[in-house]
Amino acid sequence: MNYHWNWGIFFEPNPMGTGTYLDMLLSGLALTLKTAVLAWIIALIFGSIVGVMRTLPSRAAYWFGFCWVEFFRNMPLLVQLFLWFFVLPELLPKAAGTWLKQLPNAPFWTAAIGVGFFMSARVAVQLQAGIGSLPRGQKMAATALGLTTMQGYRYVLLPMAFRIILPPLTSEFLNTIKNTAVAITIGLLELTGQARSMQEFSFQVFEAFTAATLIYLLVNAVVVTSMRFLERYVAIPGYITGK
């Protein structure tokens, strides 16, 4: 292999005139983080609602939750993003479709919502398992005290269920960050996208993707560490692995 290594490339100006190649990667990182955080918020909100619905006695709620989860988890993420980005605007009435296509930052919003819904199915299933793992008597005790179903979930079941599923939720947060890379296919210039353009401009493919890899590792290390702190912070004295 006749490859010309050049680690100094990061400090050379990029052809877009936006500073160095490193600046390019960092702007990609910023976009990756923005997309991931928004997607994670969406995943948590919708995942919580759908996860709770899957544990309610109501058949309708259960079926809604079932359909939501099976729809979003049984299709490849890539196909889902294509659906939202390329297919949905064509299916809508012409005016609405045109309006959607002309929205500023369309790749960003599509990626955040698309990844968010995809991940919400996974959060929902885990929350359902977390709630299901609580003793049946907990719900009964809450009910017997006169708490409504909503109050029972809010004050009794969910605080415990979320504590139980915190470790797997950490993995899902990491997956959310990594999954935003798929958005390169709808033109989002996030970290992977910027690494790719760096490669195309400079032909330093190994340097570009080594840098991207290290940045992903670093970000995920920060997430893992802070989730460990969160786990310890919400641990219950005397309970399982409490403090």
């Binding site: 008597g137 005790a141 005290l145 006169g146 309970y239």
Partner: peptide, 18 residues
């Protein structure tokens, strides 16, 4: 409302652990 006036004690206590 009715349940709030009827106290209940369970076999496995069912205190809220958190």
């Amino acid at each position: 409302k009715l349940r709030s006036r009827v106290g209940m004690v369970f076999q496995h206590f069912e205190l809220f652990p958190h």
